[in-house]
Design a protein around this nucleic acid. Sequence first.
DNA 1: GGTTATATATACCGAACGTTATGAAAATTC
DNA 2: GAATTTTCATAACGTTCGGTATATATAACC
Lengths: 202, 202
Amino acid sequence: MKIPTACVARGRPREFDTDKALAAALSVFWAKGYEGASMADLTEAMGITKPSLYAAFGNKEALFTKALDLYQREKLAYVSEALKAPTARGVAEHFLRGALEIYSGEKCRGCLTVIGASACGDEAEGIREEVVARGAAAKQALLERFERAKQDGDLPANVDPQGLAAYLTAVLQGMSVQAGAGASRSELEQLVEICLATWPGA
Amino acid sequence: MKIPTACVARGRPREFDTDKALAAALSVFWAKGYEGASMADLTEAMGITKPSLYAAFGNKEALFTKALDLYQREKLAYVSEALKAPTARGVAEHFLRGALEIYSGEKCRGCLTVIGASACGDEAEGIREEVVARGAAAKQALLERFERAKQDGDLPANVDPQGLAAYLTAVLQGMSVQAGAGASRSELEQLVEICLATWPGA
DNA sequence: GGTTATATATACCGAACGTTATGAAAATTC
DNA sequence: GAATTTTCATAACGTTCGGTATATATAACC
């Protein structure tokens, strides 16, 4: 009994590593945004030609979506990790310190989700909606975590979980904006400290 | 003795109001960002043709700069107003409520300064630097105000004015991002309330 | 009225954009 | 080894971009 060999590659084998190429594409999108990254920028960074890119990834929009998946999987892993913290303050601390680590990188500064959510040309509207939807999902997860925290008596009675989720999200987004504007890591760190020092209920 | 009449218009008079045209251009830039706003978008909204635009405003970059001036003069007037508040908390409150008013507009959402600071194509790098510089100036003014507040004993001894300025700026920037992502006014308002409720020293 | 100066409208420019047709190269299958 | 299938490299596609040349219209000056 033989396993059918139809699954092995049939034609000429691909000469590049799609994972490495996708990682390179992510760097370009991260640094320049969706519209700011031209196909020429992408193919140069990925080390492949345009037909190879189209054959492997579909088109620019599909490439961006795949890069966004990679970004969430690798760089935003701290998000799901932070939600597991035992207290609301612990969640906030994990969020802020994790974001600080990612946003203040050497080459890519800020958060791809925030960069991609910026208003740009009409043809990128679909991209914007996609990015905004993913951001909204993260904010929703944070809201549910804070609602649970309030039930646990982990938050003062007068604080609104919805507002708190929007507030923490805003601080993170603002951190991304400042990182993109060239703020140093220590400047962002001060920001984190203030936010933690004034966290409701200690 | 006659005043020389050389100052009156000599050729064919302009058929449009440059102030109104600039206001229309500002709306387009505000909604779509610098690169997202095409010359076709701009001329249509301004109700003039491309040669008229170039004759009156120079080029796209100069038009954006003039629109940015108008934006700061008209929409960001609350900034200099807020800095005059007697206490640091009052400054923050004026800032947050003023921003809430501007960012949650009907057509244009978020802050043009935050939108313009987003990474985009290489040729818009000059624009980005200009916008970032203006944002840095505002942050600097806030820093100086908080330093004075600390001297006045208006802030707890353990808070760092630099961090506090970066922190408040971040909340405002985050508010802009969420407004741009479609957050309702009440959502932004909750955010403001949390920030004020947790403001250092009450 | 003739001259001069400015504004308008149409049409066009070269460059860059995302995308694809075309043919040669390299692997498997028979 | 011939047929087949997929990838690669070059070059081109049509469109849109920001910006302009040209010609005509409309005002003030003399």
